[in-house]
Computed example of a mutant assay.
Amino acid sequence: MHRFKDLEIWKKSRKFCQEVYTITSSFPSEEKFGIINQLRRASVSIPSNIAEGCSRKSNKEFSRFLEIAIGSCYEIETQILISNDLGFLQDDDLQVLQSRLLEIIKMTSKFKTNLTI
């Protein structure tokens, strides 16, 4: 069993979640129940699944939760690209979020690969 608060992937994904909340606060208010909600929920899902996976008794179970966290990253990537297409997200913010997502995906994938199943 791992202590999720000690994992760098959990710390980075938690920080990323904060960035998503900050950036989406400038989105149009009519998107409150649309893309803002989707982005925020998916960003919360990343550190939440890492934490929940840590509570599992086997690395195989933990690995499944890491897969779900990675899936949430790709969901967010799609949503930020759409947000950019719609003019809600500036190119600079898009690049920052994509860079952070890629880092989280790579770190999580490597961590998952190194789990002894």
Rank of each mutant, 00 (worst) to 15 (best):
N37H: 13
I68N: 03
F33G: 05
G87L: 02
I68D: 09
F16A: 03
K32I: 04
I36V: 15
S109N: 10
L39D: 07
I50Y: 05
K11W: 04
S55F: 14
P28V: 05
L39M: 09
K110E: 15
L89T: 00
I23D: 02
E75F: 06
F27V: 05
T22D: 15
I46E: 09
E77R: 11
E75Y: 07
L86M: 09
R64V: 13
E77W: 07
S48N: 09
I9G: 07
R100C: 14
R100V: 13
P47C: 14
S58A: 08
F62L: 12
N84W: 07
A51N: 06
T22S: 14
L81P: 11
I35S: 05
A69Y: 08
N84S: 12
E67W: 12
K106A: 13
F27L: 04
E75W: 00
T108N: 08
L101P: 07
Q18D: 15
S55E: 14
C73W: 07
L89F: 06
L97E: 06
S63C: 04
Q38T: 01
L102E: 15
C73L: 03
L97R: 01
I35N: 02
K57E: 15
M107I: 13
A51P: 04
I76W: 01
S45G: 01
K110F: 12
D92F: 10
Q18H: 15
Y21N: 06
G34P: 10
I104F: 02
K60V: 08
E52K: 11
L101H: 09
E52I: 03
T108R: 03
F65W: 09
C17V: 05
F88W: 01
R100M: 14
E103W: 07
I35P: 06
E61A: 07
R56K: 15
